[in-house]
């Protein structure tokens, strides 16, 4: 790794979310919670304390009644591809969060995490959540826990992993079948659940992949692209007001917005 840039493997996983197809049903967020053993509490309405890897934001066009429009915007971790470092990996004092240069996935190693929360401060997308409490499931809901993902403990940070464990599983299968490990693709839980097929996922480096093609769509944009964090999550929208807000070009006046 140098100051000029980072090593790039043949595989760079990325996601494209088509907001024109998204109906804000929240199935992605629910499927993510079930897949990743995300804990929940009796009251989840304090959104600053709520853990949600696939958080959904609310955007509107700031017009009145007849011209009013809004859209929901699902936000996983952006798995920033910026040269040298993603904002979070740059600040982590214990190397708990790192980018896998072989596939571009920004991971978080819970036992290494000392809970300093620098990464939460550094992330411009609010993609990281802190475990303020011990995770606890009401009896007998522990039976639902997915053995492929470890539940986190109090005091560590967690975030979307692009369902990295699914990649490991797909590669293990490919290895046994003696196939090329770098040809392996997979689908995270959110994209699998999406009932309108708004979420595509794949290798951005493969020019033939659907994500690589969609990322070049004229409707495509990325969140806060002016920060040069180079997110690997792309959004599609036919509405200019949505694309503009992706980069926070204008302010809202209603005071009821999040995100």
């Amino acid at each position: 790794m140098s100051e000029q840039g980072h090593k790039q493997g043949a595989v760079r996983f990325g996601m494209v979310i088509d907001l024109d197809k998204c109906t804000g049903c929240m199935a992605c967020s629910v499927a993510c919670q079930a897949e990743n053993n995300i804990s929940f509490r009796e009251d989840e309405s304090n959104k600053l304390r709520s853990i949600s890897w696939m958080e959904v934001f609310y955007l509107d066009n700031d017009q009145d009644y007849a011209n009013y429009q809004y859209t929901y915007l699902p936000r996983p971790c952006m798995h920033c591809d910026a040269p040298h470092h993603a904002p979070c990996t740059f600040v982590c004092p214990v190397n708990a969060t790192t980018r896998d240069e072989e596939n571009g996935i920004v991971g978080h190693i819970y036992p290494r995490c000392i809970g300093c929360r620098y990464c939460i401060v550094a992330c411009p997308y609010h993609a990281r959540d802190f475990n303020w409490w011990d995770p606890a499931w009401p009896e007998p809901m522990e039976a639902m826990l997915n053995p492929e993902v470890s539940p986190r403990m109090r005091g560590v940070v967690e975030k979307c992993t692009f369902c990295h464990h699914r990649l490991l599983k797909a590669r293990a299968k490919a290895f046994l079948e003696e196939q090329d490990l770098y040809e392996v693709t997979y689908m995270p839980a959110c994209g699998e659940a999406c009932p309108t097929k708004a979420i595509s996922f794949g290798n951005l480096n493969d020019a033939e992949s659907q994500v690589a093609k969609l990322a070049k769509d004229p409707r495509a944009f990325r969140l806060l692209s002016k920060l040069n964090t180079e997110p690997k999550v792309y959004y599609l929208s036919k509405h200019e007001w949505v694309r503009k807000q992706g980069d926070k070009h204008f302010q809202n006046s209603n005071g009821n917005k999040r995100g």
């Binding site: 929240m26 199935a27 967020s29 079930a34 039976a143 659940a193 999406c194 309108t196």
Partner: peptide, 26 residues
């Protein structure tokens, strides 16, 4: 032990997609 409910990709009604209620079915 049921850990999650997914859409069936071979089913013609939902083609693998699922609604949040179904996904939380367990």
């Amino acid at each position: 032990r049921a850990i999650s409910v997914e859409g069936n990709p071979r089913h013609p009604v939902n083609e693998g997609g699922i609604c949040p209620l179904g996904a939380a079915g367990a």
